[in-house]
Simulated scan of single mutants.
Amino acid sequence: MHCWTDLAEVPRGFGPSVVTIGNFDGVHRGHREVLTRMVADARAAGTRAVVVTFDPHPRDLHQPDRAPQLLTGVTDRLQLLAETGLDAVLVQPYTWEFARQSAETFVRRFLVEGLRAVTVVVGRDVRFGWQNEGDLTTMLELGERFGFAVEVIDDVTPAPEAGTPRRWSSTWVRELLGAGRVAEAAQILGRPHRMRGVVVRGDARGRDLGFPTANMAGDSAGMIPADGVYAGWLTRTGGRAASSRMPAAISIGTNPTFDGAVRRVEAYVLDRDDLDLYDDEVLLEFVELLRPTMRFDSLEELVATMTDDVAKARVALGV
């Protein structure tokens, strides 16, 4: 899959293409259903399938106080988009200069001249251009003027047996993660929720207690679930050597037993006290909530509970 971060990087004469526009945060099952179908249609028509997405999220610019916690960083978003079979993704930097374009200018420059779109796939609530001046009617009118078809997609909802008419959405995933319901979030994502970041030095209390942990840097990508202890997986993705998935117990919270004030994400790889992960990039995947964060009256009680956490993590992960 080609990945461009500027319209100028798109090769001259690229296309013709089928294009869709969106943030695609999390690349959940609804996103993938639409994209997989789009890719199949593009293949049948002998065209390229392309996504135009944005970094940062537009609300970071327009409404920073209401900007959502992103489920995935750009690295994971691109990996997940690539899995749908797309030919290319344009990650457009979302700047004031870009945002101030008129709806017509955006369509002409990016979709028509840049990507040579023959079909543009949009939802009924599509908005684009300065101050969201463009909507579905605008896109249909511009399609007629510039010679591309507009395919309108409806919201994708779970199968009837799931018992809910609610559409797949990134907002729904955020609600579940905010409540610690990572197993339910995985049902919408089609995979475990993930975080990616560099391992930094912590207080080394875990090592002293017999459970050495990898502490994630504060700027790690991916929404942090609710405080608690989770069963999950850790994969070293960068640094001295990549590794296979390793089972882990992941703790999120402020370490109340030690009167901590800083919220941290740290992972203990089961049965491993020989790992040196400092300064390496790792991927964490959250499978199941084991318990909420608690304050303990003694170190003995804490260690006993951590030992129980590890046992429960083994069961949850099947290791």
Rank of each mutant, 00 (worst) to 15 (best):
178 G>E: 06
148 F>I: 11
154 D>W: 12
216 M>A: 07
180 G>L: 00
211 F>T: 01
165 P>W: 03
170 S>A: 13
188 I>S: 06
170 S>H: 09
174 R>H: 10
158 P>R: 13
208 D>S: 15
185 A>W: 04
205 R>P: 03
172 W>N: 13
208 D>I: 15
149 A>P: 08
211 F>S: 00
175 E>Q: 13
195 M>S: 11
207 R>N: 08
191 R>L: 04
178 G>L: 02
193 H>A: 15
212 P>A: 00
184 E>S: 03
206 G>N: 01
197 G>P: 02
163 G>N: 09
160 P>Y: 12
187 Q>A: 15
185 A>Y: 05
184 E>W: 04
188 I>T: 10
192 P>M: 02
192 P>S: 01
156 V>P: 09
200 V>T: 13
169 S>C: 07
198 V>D: 09
197 G>I: 02
173 V>A: 12
198 V>M: 12
163 G>K: 06
147 G>F: 09
193 H>S: 14
175 E>G: 08
189 L>W: 08
145 R>H: 12
167 R>T: 11
177 L>F: 05
181 R>S: 04
216 M>E: 00
193 H>F: 03
179 A>W: 04
184 E>C: 06
197 G>E: 05
157 T>P: 03
181 R>E: 13
197 G>L: 01
181 R>Y: 10
194 R>M: 14
208 D>Q: 15
214 A>P: 00
163 G>P: 06
168 W>D: 05
193 H>V: 11
150 V>E: 09
192 P>Q: 09
212 P>W: 00
155 D>E: 14
170 S>E: 09
205 R>E: 11
151 E>N: 09
188 I>M: 11
200 V>R: 12
149 A>Q: 15
168 W>F: 15
195 M>C: 13
215 N>K: 01
146 F>H: 12
154 D>M: 04
155 D>N: 13
205 R>D: 07
177 L>S: 00
217 A>V: 02
198 V>Q: 14
189 L>Q: 09
147 G>Q: 05
161 E>M: 13
217 A>W: 02
172 W>P: 10
212 P>N: 02
213 T>V: 04
209 L>H: 01
167 R>L: 12
194 R>A: 14
166 R>T: 15
173 V>R: 11
211 F>R: 00
154 D>R: 13
196 R>G: 12
168 W>Y: 15
173 V>C: 09
201 R>L: 07
192 P>L: 03
175 E>R: 10
161 E>K: 10
198 V>F: 06
185 A>P: 11
150 V>Q: 08
152 V>Q: 02
192 P>C: 01
188 I>D: 06
183 A>C: 07
178 G>Q: 05
215 N>M: 02
161 E>T: 14
175 E>H: 05
153 I>M: 12
157 T>N: 09
